[in-house]
Amino acid sequence: MTFTLYGRLQTRLFLVGTIGVIWTAIVTPILPSPPMTGYGGIGMAQMIMTKDSFVILPYSRLGLDYQITFETIGLVAVLGLFWELIYHFLQQFRWDKDWPPMFTLLAAIPEGLLLWLVINLIGVEHGSLALDSSGFAMFAIHFASTWVLMWLFMVGPLHAISLHWRFEGGEFYERKHSGSTSAL
């Protein structure tokens, strides 16, 4: 792909805002849920049976799952804006000043690792950092499937919906530049 910096940022936000949101809405109910202990907040109270006893919890099971998955993709967008700056910097070392699609696909590895760390640190996820943590399965399946779908959409159908995106380095919207204008 031949991105400009603004093209990268816009593409990231667009993909998360469309494919990321739609896919998360679809897939969350079938993801393996983490245990509900430790989550709090204001919401619809619900009685849930855990291993030992009945507890009253402020969220529905599904509500909590959606909270986790949507906060996760929100972070894919927010942290992504910083990642894109790094990718743009690395792009400067390529003679062709391009970004092969494979790089975008493989970026899931560092981004996924950092994301797992962040969602644990800021409390989106209440398990431990260990990869056998109870919440990891949901995170891994959700993140990986969303990433692959966003990537597939980017190398494929995104071309069909916007010529501007194709012709202007991944930008849907272009800031007016101060280039020479017609004197006609």
């Binding site: 031949t2 062709d96 000043k97 194709r166 012709f167 380095g169």
Partner: peptide
């Protein structure tokens, strides 16, 4: 390093007539 074209066998290597970033990317910008 940032503006060094790859070479091999005494030829400069570039996939297309123009560097890839010229096709709408940052070189065009």
């Amino acid at each position: 390093l940032r503006s060094r074209i790859p070479t091999k066998n005494g030829f400069a290597l570039q996939a297309f007539t123009f560097a890839k970033g010229s096709f709408g990317g940052q070189i065009q910008r």
